[in-house]
């Protein structure tokens, strides 16, 4: 959804989320009360959709929100705009999740559940744009993106995979980590494992191809686009 209109209202205090509470609970409470002992409800109404949509199976056409933000459209926006949009989308997502759960509890159909996927797509695209920009700057300044460093590791079974390194405060010699080589000599077990695995995968592909041939011949249907094979998972 495109929701830039609520910028000024929603984003006054959207700075970092601290891990240590700023005020004690009593002090925090006194901030929210006035002389007349009226506690503000804050923005709790933003957890709910407009009352027009209550109890409906499907929203009327004029109330259905539009498609998600595309990456091309998000690339036009400044960091500040993207930051604000993120929180607008976050609150929309919370609202939709709340409504979905309420309808589920009442065993009723939630109207237009594609709204959730659209908001998620917008948020994913936004994060992709932010990562793209940061990566570009990092690679320009430091020659590498700030992504988690990885290394190729060969496991005890002989498979190679990308392992993400973990951050430690102490140097490596203080931790007893077994030596991991990129392309070590495989011991007998690992060597046999790899050979047998390859054989098994080959047989899977062969059996699937035979199965496909058998069933299409039985159907007597003309295969026009046979690029795809039966997947073996």
């Amino acid at each position: 959804m495109h929701k830039l209109h609520r910028f000024a209202r929603c984003c006054r205090q959207l700075s970092a989320m601290r891990r240590v509470p700023l005020l004690s609970t009593n002090e925090a409470c006194s901030l929210h009360t006035s002389a007349v002992m009226q506690v503000s409800k804050g923005r709790i109404d933003e957890f709910f959709d407009s009352a027009d949509s209550f109890g409906k199976n499907e929203l009327p056409v004029k109330d259905r929100p539009g498609r998600s933000w595309s990456v091309a459209e998000l690339r036009l926006k400044s960091s500040s705009d993207l930051h604000k949009l993120w929180y607008v989308l976050l609150k929309e997502r919370n609202m939709l999740l709340t409504m979905e759960q309420a309808y589920k509890d009442a065993i009723r159909v939630f109207p237009n559940p594609e709204r959730l996927d659209r908001v998620k797509d917008s948020m994913d695209n936004l994060e992709a744009v932010v990562r793209e920009r940061n990566n570009a700057l990092m690679e320009l300044e430091y020659g590498e993106s700030g992504a988690t460093p990885t290394k190729t590791v060969t496991s005890f079974m002989g498979f190679k995979y990308e392992k993400e390194l973990q951050e430690h405060i102490e140097p490596p010699h203080m931790h007893a980590v077994g030596k991991e080589y990129e392309t070590p000599y495989l011991d007998d077990d690992a060597h046999m494992m790899q050979k047998l695995w390859e054989e098994k995968e080959w047989w899977k592909r062969r059996n699937m191809a035979e199965e496909l041939g058998r069933r299409t011949r039985k159907d007597r249907s003309k295969i026009v686009y046979s690029e795809r094979q039966l997947r073996s998972d």
């Binding site: 959207l14 700075s15 503000s40 409800k41 804050g42 709790i44 933003e46 609150k91």
Partner: peptide, 8 residues
């Protein structure tokens, strides 16, 4: 911060 609720 996001919903401005008086959380105790």
């Amino acid at each position: 911060k996001i919903y401005e609720l008086p959380v105790r």
